[in-house]
Computed example of a mutant assay.
Amino acid sequence: MKEGSHVDRASNQLLLSFCKDYFSDEPFGYISHRLNSYSVDPTVYMDAGSHPGLKAIAVVFDNPLIKSNVVLEKQFFNQPFESFNSVDEAKKWLSELLIK
C-alpha cells in the first residue's frame, strides 16, 4: 500500500474478488507487510471473514505505532489474525495453520 492510503470496503471488495478468481475456494492466508503507514477501515475484516477460502491474516510490522491498529483490526476478524516481526515468521505460521 502506498504511504497515507486508506483501505475501505470498496477497495477490499476488489482484493477479495481477485482472491476468489485466483484461489477459488482453496484455503489461503493473507500477509500484510506494513512497510508504509496507511489506514484500514476495520469493517473490511467482517467482509474478509466471509470469504470462503481466507483462513487467516498475518500482519508484519516493525513500527510499534502500528501495533495498536493491529489490535483494533483483529477484533473485527473471526479467523486467526496474528502479528509478526518478520515475513518468514508469518509465512511459517500460515503454512502450519493451513496444513491442519
Rank of each mutant, 00 (worst) to 15 (best):
M1Q: 02
M1T: 03
E3F: 12
S5W: 08
D8C: 13
R9W: 07
A10C: 03
L14N: 06
L15P: 13
L15I: 15
L15C: 07
F18P: 01
F18A: 05
F18C: 03
K20M: 12
F23L: 04
F23T: 03
S24T: 12
E26R: 15
E26K: 15
I31N: 02
I31L: 06
R34Y: 05
L35A: 04
S37I: 12
S37M: 12
V40D: 00
V40E: 01
P42A: 01
T43H: 06
V44K: 00
V44S: 01
V44P: 02
M46E: 05
D47T: 14
G49Q: 01
S50C: 04
S50P: 00
I57P: 00
I57A: 00
V59I: 14
V60T: 11
V60G: 04
D62M: 06
P64K: 11
S68N: 05
N69W: 02
N69P: 02
V70A: 02
V71S: 01
L72P: 06
L72A: 09
L72Y: 06
E73I: 08
F77R: 04
F77C: 02
N78C: 00
Q79H: 10
E82D: 08
F84K: 02
N85Q: 03
S86W: 04
K91P: 05
K91G: 01
K91M: 06
L94E: 05
L94N: 00
L97Q: 03
